[in-house]
Amino acid sequence: MTQKGRGMVNNRYSRQELFPQIGIEGQQKIRKKHVLIIGAGALGTGSAENLVRAGIGKITIVDRDYVEYSNLQRQQLYTESDAIERIPKAVAAEKRLRNVNSEITINGLVLDVTHEELEQLVVGVDLIIDGTDNFDTRLLINDTALKFNIPWIYGACVSSYGLSYTIIPGKSPCLNCLLETVPMGGATCDTAGIISPVVQMVVAYQTTEALKLLVEDYDALRNKLVCFDLWKNEHTAIKVDGVKKSTCPSCGTNPEYPFLTYERQMKSTVLCGRNTVQIRSHQGQERDLEELATTLRRQEGTVERNPYLVSYTLSPHRLVFFKDGRVLIHGTNDITEAKTLYHRLLG
């Protein structure tokens, strides 16, 4: 194709512009917006693809993990080669998304968001989409979004059940109002399983609300907490405005943003349902992967590496080292055991 067929001359958004609630004017607004997607798992990849195809001016997608075979059933941006090569999700997602739409700005970032990072990431962001798989990160997003007055869209799913809610600072109740406490444990996709149409349904709710916000059609917002079970044929949407509390520490009259103030994020975390411990080093230095691979090759066990990570298998454990200093230790839920292994290898 010649240069003439590219860029502004094409009609790639024509069907969306024909939709009167968006129109040419809406499309121009969308072109100037920046959406931050936290998590590039099932929900994050689904939202990212929809929004990239819709022509959002700038998309940033952040993830801490790498692609595995068990992701391919529902995480729509990834391929078998991403799983074989253990490509970080943010890298694989960015590459695929750029192939889908080369006319917008797309950034994939390999990192585990803490409150400091999130406060930097949200600068200039118009909307945050929840693509995470845990309540800790969601409450962090919630506090950050409220502090910086940015709307965000909660979405979650497990099994054949999913739900979504749009949080507008100053208007709707926030996630902390709705939850009151941080739910512990419970079913995850790794323990209870999940079918992909549920992901698509949550993504459809999230990205439709996103489009409404991005074209500034605020009257069209759903204003309800929606949930459904696709297998049981149930569908519910309820008004939760009354749940908003003036005493809420996140969105009340005197907000303290508890999930930003306290250092709730530990240096080591057990990844729920995954038989994996994550250890984070706070030195703020990039890990030299080449040097690490050389060190590990002198030990027993198998070393594999790609430009983004080093994977070291010493049965029954597998350790995956990222450039940003994090290590995932698969094959244990025991932080002490994981740390022992880590220190035995790296001192």
Partner: peptide, 9 residues
């Protein structure tokens, strides 16, 4: 109507 929160995604 009962709406319960889940963490997956």
């Amino acid at each position: 109507e009962l709406v319960h929160f889940v963490g997956g995604g």
